[in-house]
Amino acid sequence: MDTHLPSPHPSPGGRGRSPVGTLARRAATLFVVHGILIAGAVFILLPFVWMLITSIKSPAEIFAVDFSLWPKHFNAVENYGFALQKVPLLRFAANGVIVCAGILLIQLLVAIPCAYALAKLRFPGRTALFALVLMGLCIPIQVPALPLYMGLAQVGLLNTYFAIMMPFFSSVFAIFLFRQFFRSYPDEIIHAARLDGMSEFEIVWLIVVPSAWPAIAAFSVFSIVAHWNDLYWPLIVISDTHLATPPLGMMFFADAETGSNYGALTAAATVLTAPLVVAFLIARRRFIEGITMTGIK
């Protein structure tokens, strides 16, 4: 014990510091921390800022050799006007809304009862179905895409909204997520509802679903973000410009219409990116929760 006599005084090897030293140290730490964070933030924000600025610049300034950050002449009306006239940007956005809403609606209608059955009901084939769901979690859309494409081509359904939405109607992910959520729902309430004479159908939609709101909201955010931004599948089944979803529309636009009209191109990018980004800025918590809760992208 003697060897460890307390010595609160700054010992030779100790690191006693004066208050000023501590302050300086803290300031230095803050400086380094924010330095790194800001450098990263600049990297992250660069394309957003450049997109917004270019979308209001005139072609002359865009092509000027000595580049400037802030435009001298505002060309916003022309750029956005050109983008909106030349390509049906609003149509792309509307397609995005239709596709996302349709997919989400059917996903919820299909997945919620199934998840409830897997979580709370005993029926033949339950284990097999759940195994199927788990397996489905590992299969990305690119795998069944080829046969699905052939099937749709066979029945002449390419270039329809149905074709864009069809592969996503049954979301294994939604089933899995809701099952986990429903499992923690108290059995007593379900038993009580049965004793009160409610049918299983009513129990699902009137009793269980209202309490599953956080999971539904999280999944909705995940589903909308995924399908608004999806390119692979729409690219395969849609060639008609009027049915293009936002990313596909953007691709068409970048290919054909503008060539190197960067002002209009960035204006279009702004219009198509804005809805989700604005929604994200409004419902920040829900978005982060939704996308991360789901984990798998």
Partner: peptide
């Protein structure tokens, strides 16, 4: 007061 937790023994 200027010592950090582990230095206070």
């Amino acid at each position: 007061d200027h010592l950090r937790p582990h230095e206070r023994q």
